[in-house]
């Protein structure tokens, strides 16, 4: 076996691991279906951006990382939090504004955080978290730790100044960071072709910032895993940052209040034919790891788990008025006092 083939072999996941990805994607899909219902029932407030269609990106890439690696993302963050392992009840509780939510009811859908899982949010100003990711990678290098940072954002963020400043810093200081652009092709209602002078995103970081760019089929969980696994090895090897463009598609609107006049039903249907969950299902059937009976059992199990978490979250306590004063400061001081 050649070294390249050996290396590729090493990057291959076990089939049981792939079944777990399949389950995770089902959880994300089911979580968001319930989330969508709850939003319509006005149990969820604020803006809510669903991830449906993009599940293979969060699941495949985070499967390639270690629990000690740092993860940070934008406001379409449900999938990343679930793939990172945050409990579903804490996530529903956050959506429902409860004290036991993953951000204690202070963040909502766009601001999931879980320090224990090295999940650093959940950031809702487009592109604003990308410099933070660079700082986290700076800390990794400063402390000579064996970690990488995965920073997720959408195609829309790539035209923000913060993105370009951050990429320049990451390239300049050779920081261990995987930039994952989830190109779902629309920044809200504006197609990437109408927003980017160079819409082939993988070309935009190499010459400009010395960060190699690669693209991957973001509807193929296994392909995303392989690409991220290789990227993580590259970063751990002290080679600096890398940029991955995951070509994907979101099934729902930008947020819950999006009439989606900017695209046709046919376009959506075309992508849904290549659904990432269906894709992995086929791959696992071909490997003999799944059959219809197992699939049905998994779906029922996931449905029950999501419903149980949703019901539990509805029973969780509301925060108290005095809680507004908590966590403004680490060393707190009150409002103006006599």
């Amino acid at each position: 076996m050649s070294t390249v083939a050996e290396k590729n072999q090493k990057l291959e996941p076990a089939v049981t691991q792939m079944v777990d990805w399949y389950r995770q994607m089902l959880v994300i899909r089911q979580f968001e279906l319930r989330c969508s219902q709850s939003y319509q029932q006005q149990k969820v407030g604020g803006f809510c951006h669903l991830y449906m269609g993009q599940e293979a990106v969060a699941v495949g890439s985070l499967a390639a990382l270690r629990p000690s690696d740092y993860v940070i993302t934008a406001y379409r963050d449900h999938g990343h939090a679930i793939a990172r392992g945050t409990g579903l009840t804490a996530l529903f509780a956050e959506l429902y504004g409860r004290a036991t939510g993953c951000s204690h009811g202070k963040g909502g859908s766009m601001h999931f955080f879980d320090r224990g899982k090295n999940f650093f949010g959940g950031h809702a100003i487009v592109g604003a978290h990308i410099p933070l990711a660079v700082g986290m990678a700076w800390a990794v290098k400063y402390r000579a730790e064996d970690r990488v940072v995965a920073c997720f954002f959408g195609d829309g963020a790539m035209n923000q100044g913060a993105f370009h400043e951050a990429l320049n810093l990451a390239g300049l200081f050779k920081l261990p960071i995987i930039f994952v652009a989830e190109n779902n092709q629309y920044g809200m209602g504006t197609h990437v072709d109408r927003a980017s002078a160079v819409p082939d995103l993988k070309l935009r970081t190499g010459d400009a910032y010395g960060i190699d760019g690669k693209d991957v089929d973001g509807m193929d969980c296994l392909a995303v895993y392989r690409m991220t696994r290789a990227a993580a090895e590259y970063c751990r090897g002290g080679n600096g940052a890398i940029f991955l463009e995951a070509k994907t598609y979101r099934y729902r609107g930008h947020s819950m209040s999006d009439p989606q006049k900017y695209r046709t039903k046919e376009e959506l249907a075309r992508y849904q034919e290549h659904d990432p969950i269906g894709r992995l299902e086929e791959q696992l059937k071909a490997r003999g790891a799944l059959d219809e009976r197992k699939i049905e059992a998994l779906r029922q199990e996931v449905h029950a788990a999501v419903e149980a978490a949703h019901h539990q979250a509805e029973q969780e306590p509301w925060p108290q008025p005095d809680d507004v004063w908590k966590d403004v400061y680490a060393n707190p001081f009150g409002p103006y006092q006599l």
Partner: peptide
């Protein structure tokens, strides 16, 4: 730092997030 105030202010914050 290069002349990138947004970039390096954010870099500082990211480093602080993980305890530096």
């Amino acid at each position: 730092m290069p002349i990138s105030e947004c970039g390096f202010a954010g870099l500082g914050l990211g480093a602080a997030l993980v305890g530096l």
